[in-house]
Simulated scan of single mutants.
Amino acid sequence: MFRHRGKGRTLIHNLQLASLLSLVAGIVNVTGIFALQTLTTNVTGHFAYFADEVARSNFSSAAVFLVYIIAFSAGAFSSNFLIEITARSNNRYGVAFPIGIEVFILIFIAFLSPEALQAHGHLIACSLLFAMGLQNALVTSLSNAVVRTTHLTGLFTDLGIEFSKLIFYRHPDQQKALKGSIKLRLTIIAFFFSGCIVGGLVYFFFGLLSLLLAAFILIIGWFHAFFRYNFLRWRRQHIP
Protein backbone atom coordinates (compact mmCIF):
# COMPACT_ATOMS: atom_id res chain seq x y z
CA MET A 1 0.00 0.00 0.00
CA PHE A 2 2.73 2.52 0.97
CA ARG A 3 5.70 0.72 -0.53
CA HIS A 4 4.92 0.80 -4.27
CA ARG A 5 5.01 3.96 -6.37
CA GLY A 6 3.78 4.92 -9.83
CA LYS A 7 3.58 2.08 -12.35
CA GLY A 8 4.56 -0.46 -9.69
CA ARG A 9 1.17 -0.05 -8.06
CA THR A 10 -1.85 -2.22 -8.73
CA LEU A 11 -5.55 -1.46 -8.39
CA ILE A 12 -5.52 -3.31 -5.04
CA HIS A 13 -2.72 -1.07 -3.74
CA ASN A 14 -4.66 2.04 -4.74
CA LEU A 15 -7.93 0.75 -3.29
CA GLN A 16 -6.23 0.08 0.05
CA LEU A 17 -4.58 3.51 0.07
CA ALA A 18 -7.77 5.26 -1.03
CA SER A 19 -10.01 3.61 1.56
CA LEU A 20 -7.63 4.28 4.45
CA LEU A 21 -6.75 7.90 3.73
CA SER A 22 -10.15 9.04 2.44
CA LEU A 23 -11.64 7.75 5.71
CA VAL A 24 -9.12 9.89 7.60
CA ALA A 25 -9.87 12.90 5.39
CA GLY A 26 -13.59 12.53 6.04
CA ILE A 27 -13.05 12.57 9.80
CA VAL A 28 -10.78 15.63 9.62
CA ASN A 29 -13.19 17.37 7.26
CA VAL A 30 -16.22 17.09 9.52
CA THR A 31 -14.19 17.88 12.66
CA GLY A 32 -12.89 21.07 11.06
CA ILE A 33 -16.41 22.11 10.06
CA PHE A 34 -17.90 21.46 13.51
CA ALA A 35 -15.02 22.79 15.62
CA LEU A 36 -13.75 25.67 13.49
CA GLN A 37 -16.57 26.35 11.02
CA THR A 38 -14.06 26.25 8.19
CA LEU A 39 -12.76 23.88 5.51
CA THR A 40 -9.73 21.93 6.65
CA THR A 41 -9.21 19.31 3.93
CA ASN A 42 -9.04 21.40 0.74
CA VAL A 43 -8.58 25.00 -0.36
CA THR A 44 -11.10 25.34 -3.21
CA GLY A 45 -13.59 27.19 -1.04
CA HIS A 46 -10.87 29.34 0.53
CA PHE A 47 -10.01 30.80 -2.87
CA ALA A 48 -13.63 31.95 -3.22
CA TYR A 49 -13.64 33.42 0.29
CA PHE A 50 -10.31 35.14 -0.39
CA ALA A 51 -11.60 36.75 -3.58
CA ASP A 52 -14.81 37.82 -1.85
CA GLU A 53 -12.96 39.49 1.02
CA VAL A 54 -10.61 41.28 -1.38
CA ALA A 55 -13.59 42.55 -3.37
CA ARG A 56 -15.08 43.91 -0.12
CA SER A 57 -11.70 45.49 0.81
CA ASN A 58 -11.56 43.33 3.94
CA PHE A 59 -7.87 42.71 3.49
CA SER A 60 -7.22 41.37 6.99
CA SER A 61 -9.90 38.70 6.52
CA ALA A 62 -8.59 37.98 3.02
CA ALA A 63 -5.12 37.44 4.47
CA VAL A 64 -6.46 34.67 6.72
CA PHE A 65 -7.74 32.69 3.74
CA LEU A 66 -4.47 33.29 1.90
CA VAL A 67 -2.58 31.84 4.86
CA TYR A 68 -4.90 28.80 4.81
CA ILE A 69 -4.02 28.22 1.15
CA ILE A 70 -0.31 28.61 1.88
CA ALA A 71 -0.54 26.18 4.82
CA PHE A 72 -2.03 23.47 2.60
CA SER A 73 0.61 24.08 -0.06
CA ALA A 74 3.36 24.01 2.55
CA GLY A 75 2.13 20.60 3.71
CA ALA A 76 2.22 19.29 0.15
CA PHE A 77 5.72 20.69 -0.37
CA SER A 78 6.99 19.20 2.89
CA SER A 79 5.50 15.78 2.16
CA ASN A 80 7.06 15.40 -1.27
CA PHE A 81 10.34 16.91 -0.08
CA LEU A 82 10.63 14.28 2.65
CA ILE A 83 9.68 11.47 0.25
CA GLU A 84 12.28 12.56 -2.31
CA ILE A 85 15.03 13.02 0.28
CA THR A 86 14.50 9.58 1.78
CA ALA A 87 14.17 7.95 -1.66
CA ARG A 88 17.60 9.26 -2.58
CA SER A 89 19.07 7.74 0.58
CA ASN A 90 17.49 4.34 -0.24
CA ASN A 91 15.20 4.54 2.78
CA ARG A 92 12.33 2.15 2.07
CA TYR A 93 10.12 3.73 4.71
CA GLY A 94 10.29 7.37 3.64
CA VAL A 95 6.50 7.74 3.66
CA ALA A 96 6.60 7.18 7.41
CA PHE A 97 7.86 10.74 7.89
CA PRO A 98 4.87 12.62 6.42
CA ILE A 99 2.51 10.11 8.03
CA GLY A 100 4.25 10.57 11.37
CA ILE A 101 3.97 14.35 11.14
CA GLU A 102 0.29 14.10 10.26
CA VAL A 103 -0.36 11.77 13.19
CA PHE A 104 1.49 14.12 15.56
CA ILE A 105 -0.58 17.12 14.40
CA LEU A 106 -3.87 15.25 14.77
CA ILE A 107 -3.03 13.95 18.26
CA PHE A 108 -1.76 17.34 19.44
CA ILE A 109 -4.91 19.16 18.29
CA ALA A 110 -7.17 16.42 19.69
CA PHE A 111 -6.07 17.26 23.25
CA LEU A 112 -6.40 21.04 23.00
CA SER A 113 -8.77 22.69 25.44
CA PRO A 114 -11.91 24.59 24.37
CA GLU A 115 -10.15 27.78 25.46
CA ALA A 116 -7.20 27.06 23.15
CA LEU A 117 -9.62 26.27 20.34
CA GLN A 118 -11.33 29.61 20.84
CA ALA A 119 -8.10 31.60 21.13
CA HIS A 120 -6.12 29.95 18.34
CA GLY A 121 -8.76 28.83 15.85
CA HIS A 122 -6.93 30.14 12.80
CA LEU A 123 -3.66 28.49 13.80
CA ILE A 124 -5.43 25.18 14.41
CA ALA A 125 -7.12 25.41 11.01
CA CYS A 126 -3.73 26.06 9.41
CA SER A 127 -2.30 23.01 11.17
CA LEU A 128 -5.09 20.76 9.91
CA LEU A 129 -4.72 22.16 6.39
CA PHE A 130 -0.97 21.52 6.57
CA ALA A 131 -1.66 17.93 7.64
CA MET A 132 -4.11 17.41 4.79
CA GLY A 133 -1.60 18.92 2.36
CA LEU A 134 0.89 16.33 3.62
CA GLN A 135 -1.61 13.55 3.05
CA ASN A 136 -2.79 14.70 -0.36
CA ALA A 137 0.75 15.06 -1.68
CA LEU A 138 1.69 11.66 -0.26
CA VAL A 139 -1.23 9.95 -1.99
CA THR A 140 -0.64 11.82 -5.24
CA SER A 141 3.05 10.94 -5.26
CA LEU A 142 2.56 7.26 -4.45
CA SER A 143 -0.26 6.69 -6.93
CA ASN A 144 1.12 8.87 -9.73
CA ALA A 145 -1.88 11.22 -9.32
CA VAL A 146 -4.41 8.39 -9.66
CA VAL A 147 -5.72 8.71 -6.08
CA ARG A 148 -6.91 11.87 -4.34
CA THR A 149 -8.46 11.69 -0.88
CA THR A 150 -9.11 15.16 0.54
CA HIS A 151 -11.77 16.58 -1.82
CA LEU A 152 -14.47 15.19 -4.10
CA THR A 153 -15.07 17.73 -6.88
CA GLY A 154 -12.56 16.19 -9.27
CA LEU A 155 -13.73 12.69 -8.38
CA PHE A 156 -17.32 13.37 -9.40
CA THR A 157 -16.07 15.03 -12.59
CA ASP A 158 -13.95 11.99 -13.44
CA LEU A 159 -16.83 9.66 -12.59
CA GLY A 160 -19.14 11.44 -15.00
CA ILE A 161 -16.53 11.23 -17.75
CA GLU A 162 -15.78 7.55 -17.14
CA PHE A 163 -19.43 6.49 -17.00
CA SER A 164 -19.93 8.14 -20.39
CA LYS A 165 -16.84 6.39 -21.76
CA LEU A 166 -18.34 3.02 -20.80
CA ILE A 167 -20.91 3.60 -23.53
CA PHE A 168 -18.37 4.22 -26.28
CA TYR A 169 -15.25 2.24 -25.34
CA ARG A 170 -16.35 -1.37 -25.77
CA HIS A 171 -13.06 -3.24 -26.06
CA PRO A 172 -12.63 -5.64 -23.08
CA ASP A 173 -9.33 -4.06 -22.00
CA GLN A 174 -10.86 -0.59 -22.14
CA GLN A 175 -13.91 -1.74 -20.20
CA LYS A 176 -11.71 -3.37 -17.57
CA ALA A 177 -9.60 -0.24 -17.10
CA LEU A 178 -12.66 2.01 -16.89
CA LYS A 179 -14.46 -0.22 -14.40
CA GLY A 180 -11.33 -0.39 -12.24
CA SER A 181 -11.04 3.39 -12.24
CA ILE A 182 -14.75 3.81 -11.43
CA LYS A 183 -14.43 1.31 -8.57
CA LEU A 184 -11.49 3.27 -7.17
CA ARG A 185 -13.33 6.59 -7.29
CA LEU A 186 -16.49 5.15 -5.74
CA THR A 187 -14.34 3.67 -2.96
CA ILE A 188 -12.83 7.08 -2.19
CA ILE A 189 -16.26 8.73 -2.14
CA ALA A 190 -17.77 5.99 0.05
CA PHE A 191 -14.96 6.06 2.61
CA PHE A 192 -14.79 9.86 2.69
CA PHE A 193 -18.54 9.96 3.31
CA SER A 194 -18.20 7.23 5.97
CA GLY A 195 -15.43 9.23 7.64
CA CYS A 196 -17.69 12.28 7.76
CA ILE A 197 -20.53 10.28 9.33
CA VAL A 198 -18.36 8.45 11.87
CA GLY A 199 -16.29 11.55 12.64
CA GLY A 200 -19.43 13.60 13.15
CA LEU A 201 -20.89 11.07 15.58
CA VAL A 202 -17.64 10.85 17.55
CA TYR A 203 -17.31 14.64 17.60
CA PHE A 204 -20.86 14.95 18.94
CA PHE A 205 -19.88 12.93 22.03
CA PHE A 206 -16.14 13.65 22.42
CA GLY A 207 -15.34 16.88 20.59
CA LEU A 208 -11.85 17.24 19.15
CA LEU A 209 -10.94 13.76 20.37
CA SER A 210 -12.51 12.60 17.10
CA LEU A 211 -9.10 13.41 15.59
CA LEU A 212 -7.63 10.59 17.69
CA LEU A 213 -9.70 8.19 15.61
CA ALA A 214 -8.15 9.59 12.42
CA ALA A 215 -4.66 9.29 13.93
CA PHE A 216 -5.36 5.73 15.10
CA ILE A 217 -6.49 4.71 11.59
CA LEU A 218 -3.27 6.11 10.13
CA ILE A 219 -1.12 4.29 12.68
CA ILE A 220 -2.89 0.97 12.17
CA GLY A 221 -2.66 1.34 8.39
CA TRP A 222 1.05 2.09 8.48
CA PHE A 223 1.93 -0.77 10.82
CA HIS A 224 -0.22 -3.20 8.85
CA ALA A 225 1.61 -2.24 5.64
CA PHE A 226 5.01 -2.36 7.40
CA PHE A 227 4.57 -5.81 8.94
CA ARG A 228 2.89 -7.26 5.86
CA TYR A 229 5.74 -6.12 3.62
CA ASN A 230 8.39 -7.54 5.93
CA PHE A 231 6.49 -10.81 6.35
CA LEU A 232 6.17 -11.27 2.60
CA ARG A 233 9.86 -10.48 2.12
CA TRP A 234 10.81 -13.00 4.84
CA ARG A 235 8.60 -15.66 3.26
CA ARG A 236 10.18 -15.16 -0.16
CA GLN A 237 13.65 -15.54 1.37
CA HIS A 238 12.96 -18.59 3.56
CA ILE A 239 10.15 -20.51 1.92
CA PRO A 240 10.82 -22.00 -1.53
Results as ranks from 00 to 15, higher is better:
residue 137 A to H: 04
residue 158 D to Q: 13
residue 164 S to E: 03
residue 154 G to L: 10
residue 175 Q to N: 01
residue 180 G to Y: 15
residue 188 I to S: 08
residue 153 T to P: 07
residue 169 Y to W: 14
residue 152 L to N: 01
residue 139 V to P: 04
residue 192 F to G: 12
residue 169 Y to F: 15
residue 182 I to F: 13
residue 163 F to N: 11
residue 147 V to H: 06
residue 166 L to K: 00
residue 179 K to R: 05
residue 140 T to V: 07
residue 165 K to D: 05
residue 131 A to F: 06
residue 186 L to V: 10
residue 151 H to Y: 04
residue 179 K to M: 05
residue 186 L to D: 08
residue 185 R to A: 07
residue 185 R to Y: 12
residue 200 G to W: 01
residue 192 F to M: 08
residue 130 F to D: 04
residue 191 F to Q: 05
residue 136 N to E: 11
residue 192 F to K: 11
residue 188 I to N: 07
residue 154 G to I: 12
residue 182 I to D: 13
residue 175 Q to M: 02
residue 186 L to N: 06
residue 171 H to L: 10
residue 155 L to D: 15
residue 171 H to Y: 14
residue 141 S to P: 10
residue 170 R to D: 12
residue 186 L to H: 01
residue 149 T to K: 08
residue 167 I to A: 14
residue 166 L to S: 01
residue 144 N to R: 04
residue 180 G to L: 10
residue 141 S to I: 15
residue 147 V to Q: 06
residue 187 T to V: 15
residue 168 F to S: 08
residue 175 Q to W: 06
residue 197 I to C: 13
residue 139 V to H: 04
residue 173 D to V: 08
residue 150 T to N: 04
residue 198 V to A: 10
residue 132 M to N: 06
residue 135 Q to I: 05
residue 159 L to K: 04
residue 169 Y to K: 10
residue 164 S to A: 08
residue 197 I to N: 12
residue 159 L to R: 03
residue 171 H to W: 12
residue 151 H to T: 02
residue 175 Q to R: 03
residue 191 F to S: 13
residue 194 S to M: 14
residue 190 A to F: 02
residue 189 I to E: 04
residue 166 L to I: 04
residue 183 K to H: 12
residue 196 C to V: 11
residue 187 T to W: 00
